[in-house]
């Protein structure tokens, strides 16, 4: 199964050998190809075993679960399409599906548009040191409790919150900013904005600056240079950033619930409600599998589009 990565082994010395042609009773160099060693397995197997057992098996079980039946509040192993039929024949499910899709696509577009000038400025208008600092700072929120940050937004957005208090002083408001799509979007931005800026930034710093200078020398104005040189050069990174935003927001239940009001729900809210309410896990599994299929389709579509016309 394993053989050495030849490019990593320019000296071609087999471990344990002295790197010289075998002299007399010197150790025989082990064959370099197709060798499964205890050493190699020690490092590669644990993760494989873990992810098979606690990642792939649960997801596979979800597929099985979607065919189980529920009678008298008891789940039983079965092979019945009833859950799929029930969920898919419910117009509320399809309305929710469409709403979730539109919200996530909207969030991906909005976040990409708002993040681009930021990433552009960090990439092209800041000094090396400032860029380092900006990257350093943008990484922090990605790993900092999203849940508490969403809670914190209520301090700003509620009817008696900071923003409406400020608006009130100039005789405006109160403007409802919670329990509506605006609130949901603020939450989605909280979730995805730092990551999108970072991914865009990583692709922008690799844009060949000579192309930009060339465009400028030929008389292209700034906006035209950005649209016709910078964006196409960084296309892969920009599309991947939007894709990650879509993935994150499509599956998120915190923002639509606590900032968007949760009514009407999104698919993830449906899953948490269905799961926490009792024994309708098979139906929740149907919703979850539909979401996974959607995410896979989006991922393949976006990656295909990103690399379209490019030799990989």
């Amino acid at each position: 199964m394993f053989h050495y990565n030849a490019t990593n082994l320019p000296l071609q010395g087999a471990p344990g050998s002295l790197g010289r042609p075998a002299k007399g009773a010197a150790k025989k160099p082990p064959p370099r190809r197709r060798r499964v060693t205890l050493y190699g397995l020690t490092f590669s197997l644990p993760l494989l075993a873990w992810q098979l057992l606690f990642f792939l098996a649960p997801l596979a079980f979800l597929v099985a679960l979607s065919f189980w039946t529920v009678r008298n509040f008891q789940m039983r192993p079965d092979f019945d399409l009833v859950n799929w039929a029930t969920v898919y024949s419910n117009p509320v499910f399809w309305q929710t599906y469409l709403r979730t899709l539109v919200l996530a696509v909207g969030a991906a577009a909005l976040t990409s548009l708002l993040a681009f000038p930021c990433a552009y400025a960090i990439a092209f208008k800041l000094s090396e040191g400032a860029r380092r600092w900006a990257t350093f700072l943008m990484v922090i929120p990605f790993f900092t409790s999203y849940l508490v940050r969403v809670y914190s937004w209520q301090i700003f957005l509620s009817d008696h919150g900071i923003i409406n208090a400020l608006l009130g002083r100039v005789g405006l408001g109160p403007v409802p900013m919670l329990n509506n799509t605006f609130g949901t979007m603020v939450g989605y931005l909280t979730l995805a904005f730092p990551l999108v800026v970072l991914l865009q930034l990583f692709s922008l710093v690799f844009v060949d600056r000579r192309l930009i200078e060339a465009a400028h020398n030929m008389g292209a104005r700034r906006l035209r240079t950005i649209l016709e040189v910078v964006v196409p050069s960084a296309r892969v990174g920009l599309v991947i950033a939007a894709l990650f935003c879509f993935i994150l927001t499509f599956g998120d239940f915190v923002s639509p619930l606590y900032l968007g009001g949760g009514n009407p729900p999104t698919l993830s809210i449906m899953i948490t409600d269905t799961t926490k309410a009792g024994q309708q896990w098979p139906r929740a599994a149907v919703i979850a599998l539909t979401m996974i299929a959607t995410l896979l389709a989006a991922a393949f579509g976006a990656v295909g589009y990103a690399y379209k016309g490019r030799a990989r």
Partner: peptide, 25 residues
């Protein structure tokens, strides 16, 4: 496939992972 198994889990929505783990466990 090995790399995919090693890197993909964080991109699965946590709600789905939560449900799958709960049911499986």
């Amino acid at each position: 496939v090995y790399l995919a198994l090693a890197l993909i889990p964080p991109t699965i929505p946590v709600v789905i992972m939560g449900l799958a783990m709960l049911a499986f466990l």
